[in-house]
Structure formats: C-alpha cells, structure tokens
Design a protein around this nucleic acid. Structure first.
Length: 286
DNA sequence: GTCCAGGGATTCA
DNA sequence: TGAATCCATGGA
C-alpha cells in the first residue's frame, strides 16, 4: 500500500453520500462507506464521519482544488433560507438535509450530460465508465490504477463507432461533434465562465447535443451559475403536480415560473426538488 | 412484452 | 411557436 496524503475537513450540514449520488455527477463509487473517484487527474478517497476525511496518492498540495470541488465554503443554511416557504419545500428540505451542489470540471460535466439524454442515471454512470476505461488517462490509485474521464482532445480522436461501443447510442455523434468544437476552439469552455448566465447558456447551446436542459445542468454543476434551473422529466412532473395541479402550463410558462419563484439560488432549489421528487417516487414504489 | 429514462434535432403545421 | 417523430440501449 502506497503512502497516502490525508486531510480532514470539518463540515456542517454536508451529506457527502447524498451529494455524490444525487444525479449531478456520475464518476463516484462507494465501497465500505468510502467514496472513490477521480477529480481532474487526482484519485481521491473520501469518508464522512463528523468530518470529511480525504486521501490522495499524489501530493495534493494545499487541497484548494478539493474545497472548490465540494464547495465547502458555501453557507448552505443561508441558501436554504431563500427557498420558497411552501409545503413542497418543507418536505424537500427535510428530506434532503446536507445535500449540496458540486463544482465539476467543465468538459467532463458537459460530455456526461450530453450522454444523459433520455437515459437512466445507472446507465449514464456505465457510459461514463466505458468512455473513461477506453480513452481516459491512467491514474494511480490506492489499489492500483483507474482511468480519468477522457479529455475533449482524447474523445475528438475517437470515431463515432468507437463512442457507440461505449453504449452512447445515438448520442455518439453529439459527443464527438462537441469534443471537436471544443478542441478546435469554436467554443471556449473557460471563456464561458466570465459571461453572464444567458450568454453562457447561448454559447453552450451552440454545441451539438446541448439544448436548454443540458446547458443548464453544466451551468449549474460546473460553472456555478446559481440561477440555472434544469427542467428534466422529473422536475417537469414535480412542478406540474406541486404548483400547477389540474392545469396544463406550456414549457415556456414553466420556465417563466421557475425564473422568479425559487429565488436567487433557484439552481440549488432545483436540486432539492429533484432529489425530493425522485426519492418520493421510490418510496411510493417500494 | 411494454414502458420509460436528468433530451436534442428535425420536420411539419 | 408548438407538437410529433426519430434516435439506441437497457432498467423496471
């Protein structure tokens, strides 16, 4: 066993497991109560007791990168205070205590959500794993080695057929097309960070396979635009049931509603709503 | 066997 | 603008 670099982070109101398993990220695996994954090119193992204890193989420096990824400096209680004071959110906030948003690497988040279209979360994880194992860099881990998520350059070198073999299906041409546009500089993912939210969304939607929903996921989960509000099938159903019973709002009407009803941290509210409606459905079925 | 999944692009009215 | 359809794949 190689020597491990270890660091403990004191946290309050942070549920690491719920956060890493909440459908905003697809590269984490849990074993023996510990979560293992690769952030950028660093393998990390994290376990939560009273604190979050993180371990790395390679010297992690000042750990700033992990604080940023986990968004440890965010005041979640102040954020939850801004959520709507309605019945739905009384249930949602009590069902999702400690649920957080992450700040993911941009390309990985983007490519993952291009693959997410009309897929179940378990299948998205499989696709991400397939692409990583075949085309991602080899990373040293505690037990041996794993593969990082492939860069845009690595995926742009693939053929559409190779990407289909990762079980991407008809999304293969979108992944390839987006990778090529990022590599040749047609869309600069770093430059998007300095845009306002609407411009950033418009820029991301120039990429094939990226519509409003995928763009909003990336804006929220990678760029940290708090006002981004992805509306997927779960959120769509939830909004209609909770706020428009016996009515039939158009998509435009729903978007307009979400852009002011949920406050300055609408994106956070969205993640709580997403987690709530999904866990509620699971409980109804069991 | 059937329905549906953290949708997008295209077509047609 | 908006609805319908197609696109692979595999859970449930």
């Amino acid at each position: 066993m190689p020597r491990l670099h270890k660091r403990s982070f004191r946290v309050a109101n942070y549920d690491l497991g719920a956060t890493l398993d909440s459908g905003q990220v697809f590269c984490w695996g849990e074993r023996d109560g510990a979560w293992c994954g690769i952030i950028g090119e660093r393998w990390v193992r994290m376990k939560q007791g009273r604190a979050i204890v993180a371990e790395c193989i390679v010297d992690p420096g000042d750990w700033r990168w992990l604080r940023d990824y986990l968004r440890l400096d965010e005041d979640i209680e102040a954020i939850v205070e801004t959520f709507p004071d309605d019945e739905a959110f009384q249930f949602a906030t009590s069902a999702c205590q400690g649920l957080r948003l992450l700040r993911q690497p941009k390309w990985e988040c983007l490519a993952s959500f291009i693959c997410s279209a009309s897929k179940q979360i378990v299948q998205i994880k499989q696709i991400v794993r397939n692409m990583s194992e075949r085309y991602g860099a080899v990373i040293r881990t505690r037990e041996g080695e794993e593969h990082a998520f492939p860069t845009a350059e690595q995926l742009a070198r693939c053929t559409e057929e190779q990407l289909r073999e990762c079980k991407t299906g008809w999304r293969a041409k979108y992944v390839l097309g987006s990778a090529q546009m990022v590599v040749n500089g047609e869309v600069d993912l770093d430059a998007v960070a300095s845009m306002d939210c609407a411009s950033a969304r418009k820029e991301l939607m120039r990429l094939p396979g990226v519509g409003r929903k995928v763009a909003d996921c990336v804006l929220l989960f990678a760029y940290g635009f708090q006002e981004a509000f992805p509306i997927d099938v779960w959120i769509d159903r939830g909004l209609r049931e909770l706020y428009f019973p016996r009515r039939k709002p158009t998509k435009k009407r729903l978007e307009a509603f979400t852009s002011n009803y949920f406050g300055p941290y609408a994106g956070y509210a969205q993640q709580y709503l997403f987690h709530y409606v999904r866990t509620r459905r699971q409980q109804e079925q069991s």
